[in-house]
Design a protein around this nucleic acid. Sequence first.
RNA 1: GUGGGUAUAGCUCAGUUGGUUAGAGCACCGGAUUGUGAUUCCGGGGGUCGGGGGUUCAAGUCCCCUUAUCCACCCCA
Length: 420
Amino acid sequence: MKKSYQAPRGMRDVLPENMPAWQRLEETARHLARLFGFSEIRPPLMEETDLFTRSVGEVTDIVEKEMFSLQKGKTSLSLRPEGTAGVVRAYVQAGYAKRDPLQRLYYCGPMFRYERPQKGRERMFTQFGVECIGSSDPRLDAEVMDMAATFFEELGLTGLEVRMNSMGDGEDRDRYRDAVSDFLSPKLDDFCDLCQSRFEKNVLRVLDCKNPNCGELIVGAPVLIDFLGDENRAHFEAVQEGLRDLGREPCVDTSIVRGLDYYTRTVFEIHAPDLGARSALCGGGRYDHLVRDLGGPDVPAVGFAIGFTGTLIVFEQLGLLEGLERETADVYVIGFSAEQKAAVLQVANDLRKGGISAIYDVDERSFKAQMKAAGKGDHRYAVILGEDELARGVVQLKDLGAKSQEEVPRDGLVEAILRG
RNA sequence: GUGGGUAUAGCUCAGUUGGUUAGAGCACCGGAUUGUGAUUCCGGGGGUCGGGGGUUCAAGUCCCCUUAUCCACCCCA
């Protein structure tokens, strides 16, 4: 019995036929990054495990149970479960804070989390993210949010919701947390089991419970905005102001609580309402203390990450896959019989030398089979070569889309194609 | 980590209350058409039914285990 292999759980092959959609997302991301003046950065896919523990948060699920880690000698390395930690580490290591503090950086690549796969969730997934490090100007928060929204708009994704909130900072957040605890604890027993454990682990998540019963119990709970200090409140207002200046109406949703510990002040999410359980396509916000926490100077930052998994699902749902073409050779060279074998090879070679991609049938199949292959391979042209053409130094150039055909001299083929 | 569904040709799926050589459509290959493709017609190759164990005279069809996958919870992009 032979063993058969398959891709590791929760990881999938992106086959050539799936590639057009991926390339579309990647090109859109790069294009947008360029428009907004961001530069690409590529940190390693692995970092010291400790880096993620410090940044993402010790008690988060991500570091508690979702990291792919390996021990080599005395160091524990982990595949990155998210992109920000590595970028910030690189920022600090490169010494940007002193020589060129404001950095607009973006990345696009795979992340890894050891989770149970489900719709919109994989163990290896791709994220496009930006990190704007070095300023706390609220206009940057607005700009970064606008950029994330623009990404989806450029792709043609409609019906998405951009929601924002402020989580405050340091003291206001602690005060708020205490207030929520005080509000909840008297009736804690009435909450669902899940909320009871949330209460212990991350109180604010109780406010996010989908259980209708819990939903009623939290009516009247303290709202974080009321706990913001003057400065943070002003910042929050300014971010909304900035969004308006960019032509976007801010949508404040006080239930948004990001899962990663490093967020401060502005947080936001972009949702696709009808995507099922995992509707957030993008999450982001400000993290003003992460650089400092990772051993750098006290430098503020803001960023977001967009998951390709969910984005691709919506992309397909909206029928945007149609019209995307798979990469193939422009020309398929056909010989009428095996007699023209050498000539076919030479013509293909001439085309390639002339900068035109070309392939031909390598199995010496029948003329009909070659025509068939040319017809369904998304090639633009078929170049047909028979005994007669060979003798006269010409070829038949057939436009496979238009179904038209013309005879052109063999040495003028490249020109003819470039013209047409 | 928890709960539920599914696992039959490359793909999408049929397969009666367990019973002879496991089917269809699409795809693939070839032919009808001795110089022309994505329409039509004909033919062909390809599965031992995810893997292992059990019940039975007999299992794709029942039971157990296992693996994978999907959906949901948790959490999150």
